[in-house]
Design a protein around this nucleic acid. Structure first.
Length: 284
DNA sequence: TCCCTCCGTGAATGCTAGTC
DNA sequence: GACTAGCATTCACGGAGGGA
């Protein structure tokens, strides 16, 4: 009866994450040839090819993709077992803040991945407005924060770019704005960056407008837009079903927005830096 | 103590993509 | 086409550990 060797699994995960046997070998502090042989033994034990080898590096086969999730769980379980028998309690509190404009289905996927790959983390998640989250991070109330930015912002060493998205005017499909002397706006409160941006752009464009509905969160904002209460401003990935991009000469062009990660400080526990790396990889 | 097995290292080798 | 860099595999060798 063949069984899986934890050292071989560790090498396998390292190689898969590094993208090559050479790079993976460095991660497990072994020579490249030793890791190559470990992988061959693991494949022999598994009875299937796990890696697609090429001169540019390695990728995962279908079997490898199935195994890697189990491998991570087994390694995490092994760590947990060791800490248990040594009577060590290793739990790191991770206070994660995420912009409300970040897609909720992606938040679930991100948190699931963090839970799988960092089982020692005790996650505490807050979803809110980016300005408040950034302030919370600066004041040490959040360890990591995924925030949305519009326009130029002062860069800090701990600010890591994640991705850019287009901003759009959004409304229920078929909403007719021609009858409205003032554009009815559906926005979050004034401390929301998109609220300020939308109003500023409309003023510069000399488009008359009024706040028709002020929602407390993006879900409420989407619901109000779907109900036809007016036109709002959303990033591309937040335009959910039942909403469409609104086009009118009265609506000025909008800039792109950017999601960024406010990472933990350099002296933070290694678990938090690992979590930050996972968040970045999630966006890659 | 000897022998065997396992595992790791380093050198040699082969292959491919990129560069000049 | 020659050269180089980067990648993988193979092989010889040595150390550690276990059994007789």
């Amino acid at each position: 009866m063949r069984s899986l060797d934890l050292d071989q699994l560790r090498a396998f995960v390292a190689v898969a994450e590094a993208g090559s046997i050479s790079a993976g070998a460095g991660r497990v502090f072994r020579s490249q040839s030793a890791v190559s042989e470990q992988l061959q033994k693991l494949e022999s034990a598994a009875g299937a090819a796990l890696l697609l080898r090429s001169r540019q590096g390695v990728g995962l086969t279908a079997a490898g993709q199935r195994l890697i999730g189990h491998a991570r769980q087994l390694l995490a379980l092994g760590e947990l077992a060791l800490h248990d028998v040594r009577n060590e309690v290793r739990r790191t509190q991770a206070r994660l803040a995420i912009s409300d404009y970040f897609r909720s289905d992606e938040i679930a996927g991100l948190l699931a991945q963090l839970g799988r790959r960092c089982p020692q983390l005790r996650l505490q998640v807050e979803v809110g407005l980016s300005a408040a989250l950034a302030q919370g991070h600066a004041e040490g109330r959040h360890d990591l924060a995924v925030i949305m930015r519009t326009g130029a912002a002062r860069e800090r060493a701990t600010t890591l770019p994640l991705r850019r998205e287009a901003l759009h005017w959004v409304a229920a499909p078929g909403l007719d704005l021609r009858e409205e002397s003032e554009l009815p706006l559906v926005l979050l409160p004034p401390d929301c960056r998109l609220h300020g941006l939308a109003v500023q752009r409309l003023r510069a464009h000399r488009s008359a407008h009024r706040i028709a509905h002020q929602a407390s969160g993006v879900a409420g904002l989407q619901a109000a837009l779907r109900a036809g209460l007016g036109v709002g401003c959303l990033n591309a990935s937040a335009i959910g079903p039942g909403l469409a991009i609104a086009r009118s000469p009265r609506l000025p062009a909008l800039p792109d927005c950017a999601f960024a990660l406010l990472a933990p400080p350099a002296d933070a526990p290694a678990d938090l830096h690992e979590a930050a790396a996972i968040v970045r990889a999630f966006f890659a």
